[in-house]
């Protein structure tokens, strides 16, 4: 750009961007700071950023017949302790990890051979399959949640891990992306592998997969972030059984049963769910932005 930035215009630009940044950061700040404060500091809006960190009396604890001395808590310990003890948060996190990783693993397992065949093999019906992929790109899976839900419940699969994973096993976007990528891989490489007597199957996993690592990494971030954050689909297929709750379902349940004293623990839960992704993002920004905006490179 031809930016003849005068000191004044630079300052003005920073001013605008800082105001925007403050609004964008506000909920993250609130979430973090409230997870450190005691209930009184939260409802009265006092305590600065970190709270005074004085021990406070939990009225609920006294009511259930405990001695006063046993009911004094440090706010941070209390909030994060409650986050993990009031609801099985560890279980939710575990479910989240299992579901997101299974989805990604199966997506790759299905998409990679298909992408290889579409880009490097000749067979009858190849154009038809590619047309299907392009058509599939038009259908947002969330939009067809209702018929998917009916089909899954007809085969008795609602309230299972399978229900959480199955609709996402096929990523037409992943196929499309990997096909575009494989098109750029020179045929000579594949021919050389064939000369060496590799089977087509081995070529996919031992030749194509390694060349595709950067694209696969970006797609992995895209997929994992999307499914860690997904709330709609788990809400539809998991009804009741807490055992299968993913983190968003967990905090939703927490929030709906809330009374004034639970804000701290709830914000602690929120931090536990959001912070891992944020930290990963800050560590590998470029890759994350690349991954999440993958849909922008179609």
């Amino acid at each position: 750009m031809i930016g003849y930035n005068t000191p004044f215009s630079t300052a003005a630009k920073h001013a605008v961007l800082i105001i925007g940044a403050l609004i964008v950061i506000l909920p993250f700040y609130i979430m973090a700071t409230y997870s450190l404060k005691d209930p009184i500091e939260i409802t009265s809006g006092t305590g600065g950023v970190f709270g005074k960190q004085e021990a406070f009396l939990d009225p609920g604890c006294v009511q259930s017949g405990n001695a006063k001395e046993d009911c004094l808590f440090n706010p941070i310990a209390y909030n994060y302790g409650q986050a993990f003890s009031k609801a099985p948060l560890l279980r939710y996190l575990f479910n989240g990890v299992v579901v997101t990783l299974s989805i990604f693993f199966i997506q790759v397992l299905v998409a990679l051979p298909c992408a290889y065949a579409l880009s490097k093999l000749r067979f009858w019906g190849r154009e038809l399959v590619f047309t299907m992929v392009l058509l599939g790109l038009l259908i947002p899976v969330h939009a067809i949640a209702l018929p998917l839900y009916i089909m899954l419940s007809k085969v008795g699969l609602t309230n299972t891990y399978a229900a959480l994973v199955i609709p996402w096993t096929i990523s037409v976007f992943g196929i499309f992306l990997m096909r575009q990528f494989f098109m750029t891989v020179p045929d000579d490489l594949i021919d050389a592998a064939r000369m060496d007597g590799m089977s087509e199957f081995a070529i996919v996993w031992k030749v194509m997969l390694p060349t595709a690592i950067p694209a696969l990494l970006a797609f992995g971030i895209f997929s994992i972030v999307a499914h860690w954050n997904d709330y709609f689909w788990p809400r539809v297929v998991i009804t009741g059984t807490r055992e299968l709750f993913t983190p968003p379902l967990g905090i939703r349940e927490f929030a709906s049963g809330i009374d004034g004293s639970d804000y701290g623990p709830m914000m602690a839960t929120a931090c536990v769910i959001v912070v891992p992704l944020i930290v990963a993002f800050l560590l590998a920004q470029r890759r994350f932005i690349q991954g999440i905006t993958l849909t922008g490179m179609k």
Binding site: P113, C114, V129, M132, G136, I144, P147, L148, M151, V172
Partner: peptide, 28 residues
Amino acid sequence: GLFKTGHAFVAPAVLLMILILMVPVVVA
């Protein structure tokens, strides 16, 4: 033989595309 390989490679994807994306639209 290679022609068949192509089919085998796309088969899982095609099956899933039909079951998970196309059939639900028709069902709806």
